[in-house]
Design a protein around this nucleic acid. Sequence first.
DNA 1: CATGAATGAGGATTCATTCAT
DNA 2: AATGAATGAATCCTCATTCAT
Lengths: 202, 202, 202, 202
Amino acid sequence: MRQEKRKELTREKILQAAKQVFAQKGYAGTSIAEVVKKSKLARGTFYLHFQSVEQVLNALLQEIFIDIQRYLTDMQVEALDHKNFKLQLGTLAKSLLSVFQNHKDTVILLLTTMNSEPKIRTQTVWFQELMQASIRVMLDRGVASGRLKKFDTELMSFLVSGGLREVLSQWLLYGRYNKDIEAKVDEMIGIYMNGVELADQD
Amino acid sequence: MRQEKRKELTREKILQAAKQVFAQKGYAGTSIAEVVKKSKLARGTFYLHFQSVEQVLNALLQEIFIDIQRYLTDMQVEALDHKNFKLQLGTLAKSLLSVFQNHKDTVILLLTTMNSEPKIRTQTVWFQELMQASIRVMLDRGVASGRLKKFDTELMSFLVSGGLREVLSQWLLYGRYNKDIEAKVDEMIGIYMNGVELADQD
Amino acid sequence: MRQEKRKELTREKILQAAKQVFAQKGYAGTSIAEVVKKSKLARGTFYLHFQSVEQVLNALLQEIFIDIQRYLTDMQVEALDHKNFKLQLGTLAKSLLSVFQNHKDTVILLLTTMNSEPKIRTQTVWFQELMQASIRVMLDRGVASGRLKKFDTELMSFLVSGGLREVLSQWLLYGRYNKDIEAKVDEMIGIYMNGVELADQD
Amino acid sequence: MRQEKRKELTREKILQAAKQVFAQKGYAGTSIAEVVKKSKLARGTFYLHFQSVEQVLNALLQEIFIDIQRYLTDMQVEALDHKNFKLQLGTLAKSLLSVFQNHKDTVILLLTTMNSEPKIRTQTVWFQELMQASIRVMLDRGVASGRLKKFDTELMSFLVSGGLREVLSQWLLYGRYNKDIEAKVDEMIGIYMNGVELADQD
DNA sequence: CATGAATGAGGATTCATTCAT
DNA sequence: AATGAATGAATCCTCATTCAT
């Protein structure tokens, strides 16, 4: 019983060490050797828990996956039941932000590995697809309920997920919007909802 | 003179070989050894032209850089001189697309290396920043001239560049929109200009 | 008492697992790790019974050693007491064969480890030496009793043991003589006794 | 041109180093690391010439293969053309011995790897098969020409090759017959030809 | 007695880089 | 300018062995 605990602890040490090395050198620049060194465990111990750096990355991403999925699922379900569409949207977006902030290191890892090397891509596409699917479902419901114009919701899901990703990068990677990120969310929603063109235009 | 020509030719062989290996294994998975092997040149020859894989990547990106910059500069300069704002925008966007298509392999390389490992990031941020700056300048002029609402043009530049990147990825990486990419561009502009919300909403 | 039984059972599990791995990968290719894995016991348990793969090999060979020795001893003792030398020889050889067949896996192990790597050689020479000594004793008695020509019985013991080993290999390793092995034994005796040359030769 | 020479020299260094390590530790006990160490070359250099210890073994065995094959082929061709069968046989056997003596180290290697681990076996069976086939052809011709009795020549080829191998082992591995090996060859032929049983036996 | 997590030495393999030709 | 053999550092990975439970 105690032994299992110890094993779990060692595994956690590896994950934490990997997270640090990933942050420093990036995923591609991370060797098992370095993770081992940072973890202060023996070389062989690594292989008792993982078979490759890839598997460690997976384990780290999995941690965030569940949280994200829960929030996105909630968004879909509730999104349509209320009158104030935009307000609702803002609330949900902000709670999603808090998930990201709780897993800040992992999200950075996700942002920097997404869409990169072919080998890694497979491990991160689920995130993109989950985001896009969630957004699209919301949009489809918006269209069906008459709140939104009829337009290509798939294209829109790409625009929104791409925009979100970029803003997220600016926030977590480059430290922009550190304080007023929530205000920016409302502004984003405004832009997507009503556009940037002045109405009295030809 | 003959020798210079020969040297240039060898350099080109390396670049072409590297492009192929990048496409197959991704940037991080590419070793000098493999580029050399694909180029059918001698190991030592590589070092007469480049000092690292990183430099090869740079050389490849540089090729596209000039073209992109020219187009973006054109966009800025001309964007305001005409009445039909949206039409103008579409035209410019489409010509930018053709640049991307001409350098398809390199753009894919750019898409998969952007925002990734710290070491590589430095070599690709210029692209993002150039795009965002260009977009922002256009938006600022639009605001100044009264065509666009007053809003955070920096935020908008992030949204647009992120959205564009995602659509570009879907197009070049995953083969979506292979035929109707131009139609989609107009749709994107429509969304950003007028939003997706139906006007008569409470 | 219960515990001793249990211990013996565990030891047997290890031996059986090792036998299988030996058959698959050969002695040199066998690691403790693999034996442990096949035995489904814990890594540490192995060391309670053996200290190395070498010791396991020894234990396996020992099993066959006693049986072989008994038969060979019998051969020596009885070989001279009867008139019909060749018939007697055949009978003894065939009973030896049945010993080999009962320990088929172990004999294969013996055949493939004999005369190989220096470290292993020491564990298998006893077999060769036992065989050769037994044969030689028989031959010496044959010479002494006037049944056999006077010749180098040591050399002959090498020829016979070598020949036997090869036929054994063909039988157990390569599946030849699966059915008529006993007939072949008589043929072998005939050859060694009377040679292959036609008598009326110059 | 000079460079090729150098490469060949390095290859030879590796082969010589390997030969020494094989002799000391046996094939199975030989690691690339040790061969490299003994050769005083860099670790990476090994891989420019061979991919595994197995390949080195092959290269060493190949050297002897050609010589052996030539002698054995000669034996077959000439064996029947002369009257004095036994004398002829002795002469050929002795010249084969000189081949073995010239490649003493490699023959020892061959003797200790033959019939051993499955992986290695494939690389040495050719030797056994070549020997047995050569012997059998000779025997078949002897039978056909009426010099030899009608018997199972395949079985006999096993007996002779096995016997030879054992005598060879005694000679090269254990240092027996260092001086009178040639006399022993004649004795062996005598035994195989005429048997050991005294003629006036029932 | 049995377990299995942890260890770290050692061997395999790759790779960027140098240098004599 | 081009070649490619050689280098050795760095990484990957396995294995025998220990030890607390």
